[in-house]
Amino acid sequence: MRHQVGLLNELEPGCVRQAGLPDGRPICLARTVDGQVFAVDDTCSHEDGALSEGELIGNEIQCPMHYSRFDVRTGEPRSLPAFDPVQTFQVILGENDELFVELPEQAPTS
């Protein structure tokens, strides 16, 4: 399932911003200086810092609260104090520069 999270021109290279999923969960959109856009869970896996309020350094987003760094391409932590990865989402660019994230299909509930 695809969910639109904004337009490409709303996100400058080297910048990050918050977007929301249909269930209200925040994600962090990051556009690297070479123009690629990535999406990760906005909540740091260490504490409750919002990654979209942090800084993008190359391919790594640094949490503003306790400075953990995550690779936005893989979600893997790159520095302490975080040990666990953050979830990543596939980003798809639409024909009119819309940004979509691909959400995993919900398992049917019985």
Binding site: E47, D48, I57, Q62, M65, H66, Y67, R69, R78, S79, L80, P81
Partner: peptide, 20 residues
Amino acid sequence: AFGAGRHMCFGLPVVLGNDG
């Protein structure tokens, strides 16, 4: 050494560097 959780020491990146 730096505590842990939300009150973890503010100076950790100065001592260890952002890259650790």
